[in-house]
């Protein structure tokens, strides 16, 4: 099972290594981890995607909660959320293929952010499924380089 935890933590030095250390020490598998500032400068938000069975996931939540620097842990897997990742993909492109690639980027509402003589860089934003689809579509042209962020997520509606 793959679960997404939204974790609010104190913006203290060392908090990232404490959380990362917790995962390695307890043998939990991190798929992705994003840390960033929030509207409150004294707190940071971590979005952690974890793979594991029900028992592991229960432990992940509880062990995170035990950390002094952790303010709040939310397992948002089964909640209505907006989740996004960002990818930069450098694709091989010559005069013959450039047009086709541009069409694909348009279909996926990606942007081309740089063009070189033999390649171009595509910026793709979306959830995991969309990013995967973009990568699949661009692969035949030759992906030369790729940089991806982890996933950030937020609950929909209410509040």
């Amino acid at each position: 099972m793959r679960h997404t935890f939204a974790v609010l933590v104190e913006n203290n030095p060392g908090v990232l290594s404490k959380v990362a250390g917790l995962f390695s020490r307890r043998g939990f598998n991190i798929e992705s981890l994003v840390v960033s500032e929030t509207e409150d400068p004294s707190a940071s938000r971590m979005t952690i995607v974890v793979e594991g069975d029900a028992r592991v996931l229960e432990q992940v939540g509880k062990q995170l909660n035990k950390q002094v620097d952790v303010i709040k842990v939310n397992d948002i897997t089964n909640e209505e959320t907006v989740s996004r990742q960002l990818s930069l993909i450098r694709v091989a492109a010559d005069q013959n293929t450039r047009q086709e690639i541009l069409q694909i980027t348009e279909i996926f509402r990606c942007r081309v952010v740089d063009i070189g003589r033999k390649s171009l860089i595509v910026e793709a934003t979306g959830d995991e499924a969309k990013i995967q689809a973009v990568i699949r579509s661009l692969k035949p042209f030759g992906i030369l380089e790729m940089a991806r962020t982890g996933q950030v997520a937020m609950l929909r509606g209410a509040k």
């Binding site: 030095p13 060392g14 404490k18 250390g21 020490r25 950390q67 002094v68």
Partner: peptide
């Protein structure tokens, strides 16, 4: 030392 003891403490502080 705060790095070293992280796994074996409830919490640790480096005073800044």
């Amino acid at each position: 030392i705060t790095g070293i003891v992280t796994p074996v403490t409830k919490h640790s502080y480096l005073l800044e």
